[in-house]
């Protein structure tokens, strides 16, 4: 919550908390222990180091079966490199899923808009995946 400061995001989160669709999560000792294990493990493998906030999310995802949302490269590749059973989605996976469910009409346009607004560049491999889905260049 400390990271969310701009009014649209604050309003959105406050409304979701009020209607019960969001809940505040406080890490428990077992989650904290697992998070520190994952941080240590990430430093012993060819993986970008995982910081504590991402490690807590990964530990909670593992414990409760949640999908973790993160743009952190260490967190994203952790399931593969550390062989842990947790799903990690970046904005890319979120937007593709939104398109699959019909919330986004033109996935190429949406991804390009996201790149411009967030100044976040999707990898060539991600774009190739999209081209394979929509079948156009």
């Amino acid at each position: 919550m400390r990271e969310i400061q701009l009014p649209p995001a604050v309003d959105w989160v406050a409304e979701r908390l009020a209607d019960g669709s969001f809940a505040l999560f406080t890490e428990t000792p077992d989650i904290e222990t697992k998070a520190r294990e994952l941080m240590a493990l990430s430093r012993s493998r060819p993986l970008k180091a995982i910081d504590y906030p991402e490690a807590v999310c990964l530990a909670a995802g593992l414990r409760y079966g949640y999908t973790v949302l993160s743009e952190n490269g260490g967190a994203f590749f952790a399931p593969h490199v550390l062989n842990i059973g947790v799903a990690v989605w970046r904005a890319f996976e979120v937007l593709v899923e939104a398109w699959r469910r019909g919330f986004v009409q033109d996935i190429v346009e949406e991804l390009r808009r996201y790149e411009q607004e967030a100044l976040h560049l999707f990898r060539r491999r991600d774009w190739e995946y999209i081209w394979s889905l929509v079948g156009r260049r």
Partner: peptide, 9 residues
Amino acid sequence: IKARVPSVT
């Protein structure tokens, strides 16, 4: 973003 530094994951 103001510094035009892109992020890539």
